[in-house]
């Protein structure tokens, strides 16, 4: 039996088309190119895109509970138009009270942050004086901040391609037809907005 199956495998391997050998360099190129062209066409850098993503999460999570990790943001070209595709797994719908509470919290936060801004502006100097023990040199702190910023950008750059990869898994067409039907507990919402290219 063993001899037969190994012989069969050998024969089968010979006749198998060569296409299925993992992720080939062409799909890497296609994905990288799609990402870079999306940026070229829209003037959205990975950084701005990430900000857009987080603001959208903020906005939408007031109304529904989302799986933030699985949120996908994508641009697709259809003829002359660019479509912004947003696919968000919904864990559950919020009830009315929760939504109102979230909206209230948002309002409070808004008024608070306005107040905060004034505060920080007024006693910004004294604060930095208090913390002077920790800060050895102002320049090193600046450099640190810059390095952190660069790290963040690098991280974002790494993150963005994974958004595109996930796209393939989630079959947006199906979701578009049937937005609230998911195969696990989470549900998916498809938002679509079109803009002139």
């Amino acid at each position: 039996m063993g001899l037969f199956s190994s012989l069969y495998n050998k024969v089968a391997k010979f006749f198998r088309p060569q296409e299925d050998d993992g992720e080939a360099s062409k799909s890497v190129a296609t994905n990288r190119l799609k990402l870079v062209l999306m940026q070229d066409r829209t003037n959205l850098t990975p950084r701005i895109l990430e900000q857009m993503r987080s603001e959208l999460i903020d906005l939408l999570s007031r109304y529904v509970e989302l799986d933030k990790e699985l949120l996908e943001l994508n641009f697709e070209q259809e003829g002359d138009q660019v479509a912004l595709m947003l696919s968000i797994p919904v864990i559950r719908a919020k009830d009315e009270e929760e939504i109102e509470a979230a909206l209230k919290a948002r309002e409070e936060q808004n008024s608070k942050s306005e107040g905060n801004n004034e505060e920080t502006e007024s006693d910004g100097d004294s604060e930095s004086n208090e913390d002077s023990d920790e800060i050895i040199d102002e320049r090193t702190e600046e450099e640190k901040a810059e390095a952190e910023k660069a790290d963040a950008i690098a991280k974002e750059l790494q993150d963005v391609p994974t958004i595109i990869k996930k796209k393939k898994v989630s079959q947006p067409e199906e979701m578009g037809n049937n937005p609230f039907k998911g195969d696990d507990n989470s549900e998916k919402v498809e938002l679509e907005s079109t803009t002139e290219a």
């Binding site: 060569q18 050998d21 080939a24 360099s25 062409k26 190129a29 296609t30 190119l33 799609k34 070209q77």
Partner: peptide, 18 residues
Amino acid sequence: LIKSNEMMSVDDVIGILE
């Protein structure tokens, strides 16, 4: 090269440039 998945195919390129 297209056959061995090491070069973008005609369809890939058209899909991108449209």
